[in-house]
């Protein structure tokens, strides 16, 4: 409860209507000392019935490491089945009971255990989901945004909530409404308010953008940028590389359950020469405004066992070494990459 008071209502609320201006979003006075969230060598597998009574393990995430810093937006980009949503579920501790998690997740310097995840969830760590069914349909908006607070703090919270609603252009009537009375855009703003009022430090947005028209898309993205500017660490999970490029600082590219590359936004330009991994380059060149060029093949299925590099089959520059073991994640040009060819 102590962290609730940390919100400073007088803080400059300058970004409400600010337009997103592409790449020019690096916040200047950022101190990159310690990562707020550190995921190290994470592996996730599910126990499943193969046929009849035999159980097998299905590995969906392997050797995954990422870091999220305060004041930064980290986009996680990948196709469906790359494990990006499962990573979010791992951090929030909402995996099903047949899941097995290995590796280490650190938050604020200490290990994030299941108990700590449950304690932090919805407070320090907030999820902004794609689905609007996330709100309780039988509860008034204001109650959902404020959550349960002690009686003596209620007045204060109410005041704070009004201010936040004003910032996101939500009318005072909204707080007395029920979720079904809200439009899609309003719902999104309410969800954002919920994360802001609980003074979450880490925001995880899971596919918040697909199917939005340009105006709504930019509006939604501006909320995340706003949060990052206030010092939150934002993880934006999406398959839409274009949306990610508009606001993020770093882009982690997921493929078949692991990270292939962590690139800076500035690397995405021209024909992608600055990009470190051929898969990232292919993603970039496949955009309709670029070359609209598709490489052949598919992401391997989860139950396929692959000895070498997981991108081996689709890679145009593979060599003998690539068939032997997954390349290590290494530092290249101010980013990270998992490729034998990169230097």
């Amino acid at each position: 409860m102590g962290n609730k008071a940390e919100i400073n209502p007088e803080k400059e609320l300058n970004t409400e209507k600010e337009l997103i201006t592409g790449l020019g979003t690096t916040s200047g006075n950022m101190k990159k000392t310690e990562a707020l969230l550190k995921v190290e060598d994470l592996s996730l597998s599910f126990t499943q019935y193969e046929s009849g009574l035999r159980q097998t393990e299905l590995k969906v995430i392997s050797n995954l490491s990422i870091q999220a810093y305060k004041g930064e937006i980290l986009a996680i980009v990948g196709s469906s089945g790359s494990g990006k949503s499962l990573l979010a579920h791992s951090i929030l501790g909402i995996l099903p009971s047949n899941a097995k998690l290995d590796g280490r997740i650190e938050y604020n310097g200490a290990e994030l255990t299941q108990e700590r995840k449950e304690e932090m969830r919805g407070k320090e760590i907030a999820l902004i989901p794609q689905a609007i069914t996330y709100l309780d349909p039988l509860m008034k908006i204001s109650n959902q945004v404020i959550g349960c607070v002690e009686k003596k703090n209620e007045g204060l919270m109410k005041k704070l909530q009004r201010e936040i609603f004003q910032r996101y252009t939500l009318k005072p009537e909204v707080e007395r409404m029920f979720p079904h009375e809200l439009s899609g855009g309003m719902t999104r703003r309410v969800l954002v308010s919920t994360a802001v009022i609980s003074s979450s430090k880490l925001i995880i947005a899971d596919e918040p953008t697909p199917g939005l028209d340009e105006k709504t898309l930019n509006e939604t993205l501006s909320y995340f940028k706003d949060m990052a500017d206030k010092g939150c660490a934002v993880i934006l999970i999406t398959h839409d590389i274009e949306a990610a490029l508009k606001i993020s600082h770093k882009i982690a590219v997921f493929y078949a359950g692991t990270v292939l590359e962590v690139a800076n936004v500035e690397d995405f330009k021209n024909n992608g020469e600055n990009l470190r991994h051929p898969y990232t380059r292919a993603l970039w060149n496949a955009l309709p405004q670029n070359k609209f060029q598709a490489i052949k093949g598919h992401q391997p299925m989860q139950d396929e066992v692959i000895d070498g590099c997981i991108f081996y089959e689709r890679c145009s520059r593979k060599k003998a070494l690539c068939a032997q073991g997954l390349p290590q994640l290494k530092q290249v040009n101010g980013g990270m990459v998992r490729c034998n060819n990169a230097s």
Binding site: G93, I94, L95, P96, S97, A99, Q114, E118, R121
Partner: peptide
């Protein structure tokens, strides 16, 4: 949101 239940 359900917590992960560990079956004993």
């Amino acid at each position: 949101m359900s917590t992960a239940v560990v079956t004993v």
